[in-house]
Design a binder for these strands. Sequence first.
DNA 1: TAGGATCGACAACGTGGTTGTCGAAACCGT
DNA 2: ACGGTTTCGACAACCACGTTGTCGATCCTA
Lengths: 154, 154
Amino acid sequence: MSDTPGYELPFLLFGGFRTLIDRLHAELARRGHPDVRPSYGFAMQAVGVQGATASEIGRRLGVSKQAAGKSVERLEALGYVERADDPADARRKIVRLTEHGIDALAKSADIFDELRAEWASTVGRERITALENDLRAVVGPAAYRLDAAGWFSS
Amino acid sequence: MSDTPGYELPFLLFGGFRTLIDRLHAELARRGHPDVRPSYGFAMQAVGVQGATASEIGRRLGVSKQAAGKSVERLEALGYVERADDPADARRKIVRLTEHGIDALAKSADIFDELRAEWASTVGRERITALENDLRAVVGPAAYRLDAAGWFSS
DNA sequence: TAGGATCGACAACGTGGTTGTCGAAACCGT
DNA sequence: ACGGTTTCGACAACCACGTTGTCGATCCTA
């Protein structure tokens, strides 16, 4: 047998993820977004280009609406989102990405493409594609859940 | 080009990691360790089979010695570690894994092996090996760092 | 139109980090 | 051998980010 011990796999997967995220934020800082934190990225994804209410954001992130409200406050203080009354429902406040927030998301997508290209030039484009396909096969659509921040301490 | 967009890679890596960790803890709970949390695993790894002081654990986990001390308290309350005075140095308290803690680590290793085998039977053993090799190539030895818990909120 | 569901806000609290400070003990250069 | 520096663990105050529970206002529906 003499196979790789199983505990290496989670380390390597997490190491890969962490490397990507660390480099993303280093690049983001250099390109005008020094104060985005990993969890803010997830939160902004949950806001989406259309905007959403705090309750809806909470549902997408898998946290309470109160926690989502606090996240929105932080994002608002940093200028990434803004809140506006919903003219159609006086209870609701719509959270929308600002120019700055949209810019952060667009730059993130660019940087992820660059990082993927870098990996492809290291191990070969077809290896990266195979890696993606294999991971898709073992984790399924569960990979694209947004309720990741804070999951560690669950 | 029409390649996979770069942002999928971090999702897939994290999704793989999370799947493994979630299944590990579900199995661990079934085998007598219902209250191990992901971060406790890292902390116990930092204690190591030889034991260590709180300061040393803090260094390994990349947190302050105070934070490490609090983690040790939690682990101690759950019966995974115990503290003893160091006869050779009256300042130090040696933190050691208990039988229960060693058992948790051993069972974790078994479960990770089982999960890896399961993945191998899904996508093929050589794909898993290739995946490990590719990840090792792009992330390097940085994969095996222990300072992962709480890294998300950095 | 009355009852129930949902919205955002507020309060109290838990957990897991941080920094600063402290006394006791160990180490090291003179 | 002794005095200054470093290291140990403990304690306190604080912060980030989550939780439940409650509340009045508003909307939806039977």
